[in-house]
């Protein structure tokens, strides 16, 4: 069962890609990308987990603790979450602008740029 978090995170990534390919609503596409991001973040967090480890804060560590989880992947994840927030916000903003111009959110109809 030790590899379960990795399997789950990759399932999330796969579901996100599936949503991107199958779904047509621009908001749902943005959600699909967020799901992939969450999958990757979960992957990063579970990389640094040590069974029975405590939060890696030395000043608050209880006496006689055995192990701490790795702090670096958590720092990476925080950064990735912030970046994901920015990309999601930008994509949703563009979805709003596109809706104002076209009156639709259907990616199948928003195809002025083709050929």
């Amino acid at each position: 069962m030790g590899n379960m978090p990795f399997v789950v995170s990759m399932i999330l990534v796969g579901l996100g890609f599936l949503a991107l390919i199958v779904r047509r609503n621009l908001i749902k596409l943005a959600i699909g990308i967020s799901v992939i991001e969450m999958g990757v973040n979960l992957f990063l967090v579970s990389l640094g987990y040590v069974r029975g480890g405590i939060a890696p804060i030395y000043t608050y560590a209880p006496p006689g603790f055995k192990e701490m989880v790795f702090p670096t992947p958590q720092a990476l994840t925080l950064t990735a979450i912030v970046i994901g927030l920015a990309t999601t916000a930008l994509m949703l903003a563009f979805a709003v602008v596109i809706y104002r111009h076209r009156g639709t959110l259907d990616a199948g109809k928003i195809r002025e740029l083709k050929g």
Binding site: V13, L20, L26, L29, I33, I36, E37, V40, I83, T87, L90, M91, F94, A95, V97, I98, H101, R102, I110, E112, L113
Partner: peptide
């Protein structure tokens, strides 16, 4: 204020984000 650039930006953003991930 034009209709084409936001569409291009949305598509490019999706691709760039996926590549980054």
């Amino acid at each position: 204020w034009e209709s084409r650039p936001p569409e291009a930006a949305f598509k490019t953003m999706a691709m760039y984000t996926l590549g980054g991930l």
